[in-house]
Each structure stands twice: as C-alpha cells, then as structure tokens.
Simulated scan of single mutants.
Amino acid sequence: MNKTILLNNRPNGKPQESDFKFTDSDIPVVNNGEVLLKTKYVSVDPYMRGRMSDAESYIEPFQLNKPINSGIIAEVIESKNDSFTKGDFVSGMLDWKEQQTHNGKDLLKVDADKAPLSAYLGILGMTGLTAYHGLTEIGKPKEGETIVVSGAAGAVGSTVGQIGKILGCRVIGIAGSDEKVDMLKSKYGFDAAINYKTTEDMTKAIADATPKGVDVYYDNVGGTISDAVHANINRFGRIVVCGAISLYNSTSLPTGPRIEPILIKKSVLMQGFIVNNFSDKFPEGMDQLSQWLKAGKLDFSETIVEGFDNIPNAFLDLFEGKNKGKMIVKV
C-alpha cells in the first residue's frame, strides 16, 4: 500500500496531530510521459503553517482532505519520460506520499555524488537561496557592518550568519537555548549570540552585543525579539523580513510597538520577501553557495527524523524549537 498525509483540519492556533490524516491507496500506474517517484527526504518548514489556513497569502493554501506538499527529494523508480531514467534523484514540490507519479515538469535532477541528498532541501536548496538572496539583495551588507539574525540556529538563520562573516561583517545571533548559542559561535563563527529565553532585557542585551549599533537585521521570528532589535537599528539600516514564526500560531492580531517613527527618523529600509522574488537569480545564488560549500566556508546542520509516519510530528517540533538547522524527514 501507498501512504498519503492529508490536511484533516484547519488549525486554530498551534497545529495538532489531529490536523493531519493518513490514508492508504494503491501504488499508481505510470502513464506515458510520467515518472514514478519514491520519496526519500521531506522538508518541513515554518511557512507551511500559513498554508494550513485559508487566509489570502502569497501561496495557495492547502486544501482540506487533500495531500499536503513540500520540498521533497525523490528517487525515480520507473520512467516513461525521456528526460529521466530509473535511479535518478530529483527535487521538487511534491505531495506527502510514499510513492507518486509526476509529469516531470519543474523537477530538478540532483547529484548525490556532489553533496548529500538532504542538502538539496537545505543549504543547496530553498533554504540557502532564501538566506543568500534575502541578505545580499535586501540587506546589502558592507564589510565592517553589524548584522543581527533572529532564529539564528535555524536553517536559514545559520546560513545568513555564515554569509555575513564571509562578507566581512560582525554577526550576532539570537537563539532559544545555551546549546544553540554555543553552536552559533563554535560551529558557525558568529561573533556573539544571545539566548532570548534567559535574557530579561533583550533591548539592552542587543545594545551590549552591538556597540556600533545594528546595520542589518535579518528577521526570522518577528514579535518582541524584533522590537528589541529595531530599538538598536542604525541610521540607514536595513531590516530583512523573512519570517515571523513567533506570530504564526496567534489567534488574534497582536499589537506591538509602532515602528514607523524609527523607520522615519533613521531612514531605515524594512522589506519583506519570498524567495521566488529572486527566481531569475537562482543560478547565480546556487553557484555561489556551491563554491562556498566546496571551499569549506559554509557549514550546515540538519535535524533528521526517520520515518514517513513522523512527518507531522517533525513539522510540529519546529514550533517548539527542537530543530538545529534544517528539519528533514528521511523516509
């Protein structure tokens, strides 16, 4: 039988296991022009929480009682498509199914000899491109400037920090445990890191860590952590809004400090983005990330959970901060 994971309910607040439903079906028949894919690695990401709601957004919501999808690495186990052969590995936005057919459109072949397959969902995939293009196209860091990264121990944040160091910047990370703080400094080369869960005054802690102020803030979390960084932003600073995981499960619209006076008085740029905004520059980004990785200038962490049945729990664990780096399920 062939397992599939469907969206069972639209969550109210934090998602629960009951919001997912498992079904079984027969393995599909491959038609001309198609390939049969076997799921190998599944990416779970915070942005998917937004797709579980039916609110208008930059991407279509998941449909109730339909398969959830995300970035997946799959193996071609049968092909009736001239572009693919049995044994190829591919990356694409695919359904949460053990096996599925596909017409091959938008599937990208990946090379297991050049990098671990899971890396194509992380540092050499959307994660790396999000970090690279968000920082370089919006943050535009200059050598000697100070970058602050929230959600710094996550897949995007840890990559942003390393790119900042490659570009000659001072980099400060914000994370949720002493272990993650130590990892940011020892493994990823951050100049300093702050555990927001044990810090009473984040505004002061950020000021102490950034004696010259904050030039670029790469924001993955939003909320009160971002309020504290905004209070330390420099004139002509750039705020890159990549994510807001602290707010994704809110059931009402939270009210925080009004940031407009800071933006005006300090001539600060604040811009949100999605990685597909820079799709025309993906080849450039992929080439640069590959070069840095090959040269040993980039490192990456993965939290790999085993088993198709554990995909929903791996997703839920993102909101508990249980991942170090990229959260991936190995099937």
Rank of each mutant, 00 (worst) to 15 (best):
A231L: 01
G256L: 11
D208T: 15
D208F: 06
M270K: 03
I206G: 06
M183S: 15
I264Y: 12
K197E: 08
G223L: 03
K204F: 05
I264C: 04
A231V: 06
F273G: 04
S186I: 06
K212V: 05
F278N: 13
L184S: 03
G296A: 09
D215K: 05
L263Q: 00
V241F: 05
V275K: 05
M183L: 15
S252P: 00
N276V: 09
Y217Q: 09
D208H: 11
Y196I: 06
F190D: 03
G285Y: 09
L247A: 05
A192C: 02
V214K: 15
V229T: 06
F282W: 13
I245C: 12
S267L: 13
K294L: 11
G243H: 10
R238S: 08
S290V: 02
K265F: 15
G285K: 00
P257Y: 00
T199V: 09
P254M: 05
K297W: 03
G272S: 13
G237T: 00
S252F: 06
D208K: 14
T203A: 11
Y218F: 15
N234K: 05
N277E: 15
N277S: 12
L289S: 06
V229A: 02
K212E: 14
F236M: 07
K212C: 04
S252A: 12
T198G: 05
V229G: 02
S279D: 04
S267V: 08
K197I: 08
G256H: 13
K185F: 15
G223T: 10
Y196A: 11
I274F: 14
D280A: 15
L293G: 02
I245M: 10
A244P: 02
D215E: 05
F282Y: 14
E284S: 01
E260T: 13
S186V: 07
I262Q: 07
L289N: 07
Q291H: 12
F236Y: 12
Y218G: 11
A295L: 11
H230C: 14
N277P: 04
P254F: 08
A295S: 06
T198Q: 13
S226M: 08
T224A: 10
